[in-house]
Structures are given as structure tokens and as C-alpha cells.
């Protein structure tokens, strides 16, 4: 395609001027662009395009099988007066905050335990990952049985122990249903938090703990002044991901309750699916999905600024 002139041109011969296209092709800066193009095309096609299409759809009255017209903020005005939408926002926030907080606490505790010396360490660490590996729908079915109104093993055990006299209607009662799906989400999400934090814990040099011990720190003080501050960067990352996953959760709810009873467990994602796909009102479904974006951006912003504050990680390295 192109040749690079390395020898002196022979006298009398005319040097061919390279065309603009040729120059574009060999220019170093443009070359980088060419190399990035496949990845960029991939991202645009599968990430940016659906995102913008979704946002655009939320401003139309699209229905399945029939293109709509631009209606401005009409969908959002509808949602503003829609109590079920606001219930789903409340549910989503409750679900995210409670589940993430407990996942963090339990995950951190588990990580600290797994970081100790114990027999069968590798085996136990692997076992902790199991809830994360099992397909969500499969574990949802298991939970479905555990929460069954008649055959629930929990109800059965509690009755046998004489603690309650009637079966608990786990998925039939609003508050029980919320607690149940939150528990199932925690069960699934803890391994991710625990294993990631464990990886973070293992980067902390043992001699720091020894130095702190000699400095007179109790085990709580070692956690408070050494482990926790050194772990904050990884906590910020893992909790951002955890919050994002939880906020956008769909599978578990859909497999367990489909948003019931009486919308008590409807999250924004499930409501969006129900309105947009099942009811066919794509525009409205897209509006609900789009309404999630500000929350997600806020979650990212918090962790981003949280990470930026840590001065000790920056500065010049003099090694």
C-alpha cells in the first residue's frame, strides 16, 4: 500500500507526493486511531447505541411492533403521578441500601476470617464462592422452595422447634417478601464482596501488623487504624460494583416474586420490563429504565470522589 523512501531519490526522477489518504494512513496519531477502531466500534454498537436508543425511546410513545412519535417528557409526567413507579423507586432504594450494607458487613467479616491461617484454607475459600457461581435462576428456584408458603423448610423447622405455630407466608406478605428477596440477594452477593476484599487484605504487608502490635495496638485498633484505611480503595471499588449490580437487579426478583405481592418487591428494573416488554409500552418502560441512570451516576460519583481524597496513594514514587 505505502512505501517508505529510504534511499536518496535518483536525479531527474520525480518524487511522488503522497496523497492525503496515504498520510492519514501512516501518521502516528492516526495510526493509534485505526488500532482503536475495532474496539470502539464494538463499544458503540453494543453499549452506546442501546443506551442512547433507550434514552431516546423514553421520549417517544413507541410500542412493540409500532414505531412511535416524539412526545417530549410525557412519559416522565405520567411516571411522576404513578404511585407504583414511586413504590418501585422506594423498593429499589431499600433493596440496594439494606442488601449492600449487609453484603459489605458480612463480606468484610468473612474476608477477615478467611485471611487467617486455618486448615483447609483453599477449600473453604473455594466453597465461599459457590453462591456466586450457581446460576441466579437456579438459586432463585432453590430459594423459591425455601420460601414456599406450604413446604418451606424454614417454617417447618421453626414449627418443629415450637417457635411458631403457622407457616410463614414468605413471599405472600409484603414485608416478608421484601426481607426474603433481600436475603436471597445477600446470599448471592456476599462471595463477590468477600473474595475481592480478601484479595485486598492479602496485599497488606504482615509486618505492618507486627509493627502495630509492637506499637501497642489491640486487634480492634489494628483493624481500625491499619486494615480499614489500607482497604478503603478496594472497598470503594467493590462497593460501587455491588451497589450497581444490586440496583439493577432483575433476575432474582423475576424468578422469585415477579414484583409481587401487590408490587411490594417491584424494582425499577422489573417494573421497566413489565411495562416495556410485557405490556408493550416501550416508551414508558424506557423512561423507567432511564430514570435509574441518575441514581447510578450518583453511586459512581460518590465512590469516585471517595477515591480521589486519598493523598497517600499519590505523589511521586522514589523507589
Amino acid at each position: 500500500m505505502t512505501t517508505i523512501q529510504t534511499s536518496m531519490p535518483e536525479a531527474g526522477k520525480v518524487i511522488p507526493r503522497s496523497s492525503a489518504w496515504d498520510r492519514l494512513w501512516i501518521n502516528r496519531n492516526w495510526l493509534a486511531m485505526w488500532f482503536m477502531l475495532p474496539a470502539a466500534a464494538f463499544l458503540i454498537l453494543f453499549l452506546a447505541y442501546p443506551l442512547f436508543l433507550g434514552v431516546w425511546m423514553s421520549f417517544t410513545d413507541d410500542r412493540i411492533g409500532r414505531g412511535g412519535v416524539f412526545v417530549g417528557l410525557e412519559n416522565y409526567e405520567w411516571l411522576r403521578d404513578d404511585s407504583i413507579f414511586w413504590l418501585s423507586v422506594f423498593n429499589t432504594l431499600l433493596y440496594t441500601i439494606v442488601a449492600s450494607a449487609i453484603k459489605f458487613a458480612v463480606g468484610l467479616y468473612l474476608a477477615l476470617l478467611l485471611n487467617r491461617h486455618m486448615p483447609f484454607k483453599a477449600l473453604i475459600r473455594a466453597a465461599v464462592l459457590i453462591p456466586f457461581i450457581v446460576p441466579t435462576v437456579l438459586s432463585a428456584i432453590a430459594f423459591w422452595w425455601i420460601y414456599d408458603s406450604q413446604f418451606s423448610i424454614i417454617s417447618w423447622s421453626l414449627i418443629k422447634m415450637g417457635l411458631i405455630s403457622h407457616n410463614i407466608n414468605f413471599l405472600g406478605d409484603s414485608n416478608w417478601a421484601r426481607a426474603s428477596v433481600i436475603f436471597a440477594n445477600i446470599w448471592r452477593g456476599v462471595p463477590f464482596v468477600a473474595i475481592t476484599l480478601l484479595a485486598g487484605l492479602q496485599t497488606v504487608s504482615p509486618s505492618l501488623y507486627e509493627a502495630a502490635t509492637l506499637d501497642g495496638a489491640t486487634s480492634w485498633q489494628r483493624f481500625r487504624f491499619i486494615t480499614y484505611p489500607l482497604l478503603t480503595p478496594i472497598i470503594a471499588v467493590v462497593m460501587t460494583f455491588s451497589v450497581l449490580f444490586t440496583f439493577t437487579d432483575f433476575q432474582l426478583i423475576w424468578a422469585l416474586t415477579r414484583g409481587g405481592p401487590v408490587n411490594a418487591t417491584h424494582l425499577m428494573a422489573t417494573l421497566s420490563y413489565q411495562r416495556g416488554i410485557l405490556s408493550g409500552r416501550l416508551g414508558e418502560g424506557a423512561a423507567i429504565a432511564t430514570a435509574m441512570i441518575p441514581f447510578l451516576l450518583a453511586a459512581i460519583a460518590i465512590s469516585w470522589f471517595g477515591m480521589q481524597r486519598r493523598k497517600w496513594q499519590q505523589g511521586t514514587d522514589n523507589d
Binding site: E210, L214, I226, P229
Partner: peptide, 12 residues
Amino acid sequence: AMVFQNYALYPH
């Protein structure tokens, strides 16, 4: 009081 080989200074 002990001085460690890798100094064991608290990085944060």
C-alpha cells in the same frame, strides 16, 4: 521498639 527490614511504615 523494633525497626523492620522493609521499614513497615504505615503507608496511609
